[in-house]
Amino acid sequence: MSSGVYERSGVKLHYRVSGEGPPMVLVHGLSGSGRWWRRNLPALTQHHRVYSLDLSGYGAARRQRALSVRESAALIASWLEAEDLHNITLIGHSMGGHICIRVAAGYPQRIQNLVLVCASGLLKASAYRTALNLPRALITGRKRFVPRILTDALLAGPLNLWRSASDLLKDSVLDCLPQITARTLVVWGERDALVPLPLGKLLAESIPGAHLTVIPHAGHVVMVDAPEPFNAAVLNFVDGPQASG
């Protein structure tokens, strides 16, 4: 595994690269980091060159100001151009899915497949009410992952978390969903307490040709709660049944 940093206008995007094959880009959610995909990388890197991003304000980029959804989308699009990546499978979780929607709608020429994992783009709630659901979200998810969630949240800091949460709750993607031309898979945890399943169904219905996969018993961090079904769903969608194992 190698790592890199892309900088534009003084803002840095950190990423790790592993595997070989068609490009796959992973974008983490609010309070997360690229390490949230570690249970998925062994399967995904068998078929793809996988880029795991750390957004500004998070993970390895935690010393920076967190960007808005639209600013993050523009930075990622600029990085994709700098890396000259094409026919990309773009995968985003929660806030990362929200950002990926903006990337796919605004820069369709580079995105072949879009995978939205419990994406936040249609969530309508106050930041305070969303925060109240966090304990329930921790309870419904994999308990052994709680230390990683808390560690990454502490590293990001309350100001970045509040800035990101406030911005994403104000940015509805409903108007840009019909513009998405990439093949789209929407993946949701059946027990998601932060972004409820009905929003996943609405998201899938609003994107032309999108497919919805619901993973039983999984919570909001579905790729951690149920990595094997998640990996199989993604690889089956992107590469066909022979790749999912």
Rank of each mutant, 00 (worst) to 15 (best):
L203C: 09
S3M: 11
L90T: 08
Q46V: 11
A61Y: 01
D84M: 12
A60G: 08
V187Y: 01
W162P: 10
H86K: 15
H14Y: 12
A153C: 04
R129I: 05
L44F: 12
G106N: 06
Y107E: 14
H98I: 11
V103Q: 00
P227R: 09
E190H: 13
H86W: 13
Y107I: 11
P23D: 14
L197E: 04
L235S: 11
F237A: 13
L138Q: 11
P178K: 13
H14L: 09
S18A: 13
G240L: 04
A210C: 00
F145P: 01
I91E: 07
D152Q: 01
A77D: 11
A131G: 13
S18C: 09
S9G: 15
V222S: 00
L75R: 03
S164E: 09
L212E: 04
D167P: 03
S31M: 15
M24Y: 01
I99P: 07
S2E: 14
R63A: 15
N113R: 08
V69C: 11
N236W: 00
S244T: 13
L55V: 05
D192S: 05
V103H: 02
A226Y: 00
I76P: 06
S244V: 09
N231Y: 01
D225V: 06
R38C: 13
V25T: 02
V214Y: 09
L138H: 05
V50T: 10
S56F: 03
F230Y: 12
R62S: 08
N231I: 09
E7S: 14
S2V: 12
P178M: 10
G10L: 08
P198H: 11
Y51S: 02
S166E: 13
L197T: 00
L41T: 06
S72A: 13
M1N: 06
Q109T: 04
G21A: 04
V224A: 07
L114A: 10
V25I: 05
K201H: 15
L55F: 03
R129T: 08
K170Q: 15
T213F: 05
V17Y: 00
N236R: 15
W188V: 01
